Computed example of a mutant assay.
Amino acid sequence: MEVLEKTGADMVLCYWEYYPATHSKKISLRLPNRFKNRELFQWLLKSHRNWYACMTPLYRRKLLGNKIKWDESLLLDTDFQFRVALEEPQVAVIKETLCTYRLVELESKRCPEYVILFAKDTLKAYKKLVPHLKNSVENCLLARRIYKVARTIYDFEPEVYEEATRIALSLCPDFEPDESLLFRLTYKFLGRRLTEKLASLKRRVLRLVKPIKL
């Protein structure tokens, strides 16, 4: 509470770091110095790499009120940070690492059913953001996020992938995928459908993803 009072902000974030489950080298995450108005919302939309750990923020009670609550019905409430950001809070950032944790690789995360459920929950959350978009920049940013998630279930549920992709294209027909340079070039010159087929073939050959029948 003292930090909130001192900064006068609606919300305070700090730097944090974590140790991935796959190796011991820690990853440190930094934030812009401050957010105001729509800046936090647009920063979260900009890339799937833009996020903050759920244990880092301090909120004023009036910011959350009774309408912003964690949705326990979801596998992970990916919409929570966006719902907070839509309130356009004044956010102060403490430029000091005050949070450290280690990720645990759960067996379920390698399970296709887990991937599908997580992707569907995330897509559901992103769809709720559509009415709140205010300009073409936000449209394109959300389109990229939707397409990024949709691609994770291309091998498993192509119908869901196609539906999500249609939403992304309706928001911004010429958005640029948040993918590797090779994927973006292939997407640009060969088109979306052929690019996805080639990417899927590559995953199968490398055995990174094993399509299953549900």
Rank of each mutant, 00 (worst) to 15 (best):
K6I: 11
T7F: 04
G8L: 06
G8V: 02
G8M: 09
G8E: 06
A9P: 10
D10I: 03
D10L: 08
D10A: 05
D10C: 04
D10Y: 04
M11F: 03
V12L: 01
V12C: 07
C14P: 05
Y15F: 15
Y15C: 06
E17H: 08
E17A: 14
Y19A: 02
P20W: 12
P20N: 12
P20R: 02
A21W: 13
T22Q: 11
T22M: 10
H23P: 09
S24W: 10
S24P: 04
K25L: 14
K25M: 13
K25I: 14
K26Q: 10
K26A: 13
K26Y: 06
I27T: 04
S28R: 15
L29V: 13
R30Q: 14
L31M: 15
P32H: 05
N33W: 11
N33P: 08
R34N: 11
R34C: 12
F35L: 05
R38P: 06
R38T: 09
W43A: 09
K46G: 09
K46C: 02
S47Y: 05
S47A: 12
R49L: 15
N50H: 15
N50K: 04
W51I: 03
A53R: 07
C54E: 14
P57E: 00
Y59V: 00
R61K: 15
R61F: 01
K62E: 15
L63I: 08
L64F: 00
L64E: 09
G65L: 07
G65H: 12
G65K: 05
G65T: 03
K67H: 12
I68S: 08
K69S: 07
D71Y: 06
L75N: 04
D77L: 06
D77C: 02
F80K: 03
F80D: 09
Q81T: 05
F82V: 06
F82C: 00
R83H: 07
V84A: 01
P89Y: 01
V91D: 00
A92K: 05
A92R: 03
A92E: 10
A92M: 01
E96G: 04
E96I: 08
E96A: 04
L98E: 06
C99K: 07
T100D: 03
T100G: 08
R102A: 14
L103N: 08
E105T: 11
L106V: 00
E107Y: 01
E107T: 00
E107Q: 09
S108P: 00
S108E: 15
P112L: 08
P112W: 02
E113N: 08
Y114V: 06
Y114L: 01
V115F: 01
V115I: 15
L117P: 02
F118T: 07
F118G: 02
A119D: 02
K120L: 06
K120D: 00
T122I: 01
L123M: 11
L123A: 07
L123Y: 01
K124L: 15
K124Y: 15
A125V: 07
A125L: 07
Y126A: 08
K127A: 14
K128C: 08
P131T: 04
P131A: 08
L133W: 10
L133D: 01
K134S: 10
K134Y: 08
K134I: 13
N135H: 08
N135I: 03
S136I: 14
V137E: 15
E138D: 06
C140I: 10
